[in-house]
């Protein structure tokens, strides 16, 4: 499949989408779209997105989709799944929603092994609100709230979500980190995450992504930050647990 073709489950009426040029969200959602298409799950999926840039995905697909509150996407999908176990629940959020304001939900859901698939986009910043430090901001990285670079002595080290969850998840759960630099691999990772849910277990996929708008980078620098700095700090692999 060419990267230019549109997944069948995409909502054509809302394309071209409204993410910024160079934003990685479109690629993560493409990987998700392809994964759903290939597994023929479009009839079963219910998709929920968070606040932050992820909310722009609220009408991205043809399957039932809703936009929730900041950090609360996971509990909404957990409740939906409890009420209707036939649905395939996909919770989609950024790093602020998943790792900061909603971390208690992420950890508790992982502990309970709730059968939902969580996809978290890590672009190292709060993007929608104008580029503040996120739990994932790299040491030394400049943001609006770390204008002199993230000082880990003051703000700690970037949070590694899948590694954090590795200590609490069920043996059959699925934890992985992918990157928009490798969309097809990301798609496979998401497929495993969806299959894990269908087997009754929790799945979590972090996707390394890009935000040239807030990084204030050109195309080359954007790609370089993703492929060098971010990939050096964050291991893109299935996370053993």
């Amino acid at each position: 499949m060419s990267e230019l073709s549109m997944p069948r489950c995409w909502n054509r009426e809302t394309k071209p989408h409204s993410f910024c040029p160079g934003c990685g969200h479109g690629l993560v959602l493409k990987a998700l779209g392809m994964a759903v298409d290939e597994l023929e799950l479009a009839e079963q999926v219910t998709f929920a997105c968070d606040i932050g840039c992820s909310l722009l995905a609220w009408n991205f697909f043809n399957f039932p989709s809703l936009q929730t509150h900041h950090g609360r996407t996971i509990p909404v999908m957990v409740g939906l799944k409890k009420a209707d176990s036939k649905r395939v629940a996909v919770a989609y959020m950024g790093d602020g929603g998943g790792y900061s304001i909603g971390l208690q939900h992420l950890v508790s859901t992982a502990v309970r092994d709730d059968p939902v698939t969580v996809i978290l986009v890590n672009n190292t910043v709060y993007a929608m609100t104008g580029g503040q430090m996120a739990p994932t901001t790299l040491p030394g990285q400049k943001t609006e709230t770390t204008p002199f670079g993230r000082d880990e002595a003051e703000t700690g080290f970037p949070l590694k979500g899948p590694e954090l969850l590795a200590g609490v998840v069920h043996p059959e759960a699925y934890l992985a980190r992918g990157t928009v630099a490798q969309v097809l691999r990301l798609k496979k990772t998401i497929q495993k995450g969806l299959e894990t849910q269908r087997k009754g277990h929790f799945a979590f996929i972090e996707a390394l992504s890009t935000c040239p708008t807030n990084w204030r980078t050109n195309a080359a620098a954007t790609w370089s930050f993703l492929e060098r700095e971010m990939s050096d700090y964050y291991q893109t692999a299935e996370i053993p647990h």
Partner: peptide, 26 residues
């Protein structure tokens, strides 16, 4: 009928909302 003890009241409210969206009185 079902029950879930959640991690906090935020989660209790939002999980209930999820179940409601799926069409169940929660």
């Amino acid at each position: 009928r079902g029950f879930l003890q959640t991690e906090d009241e935020l989660s209790a409210g939002f999980t209930a909302i999820g179940a409601i969206i799926a069409g169940k009185a929660a």
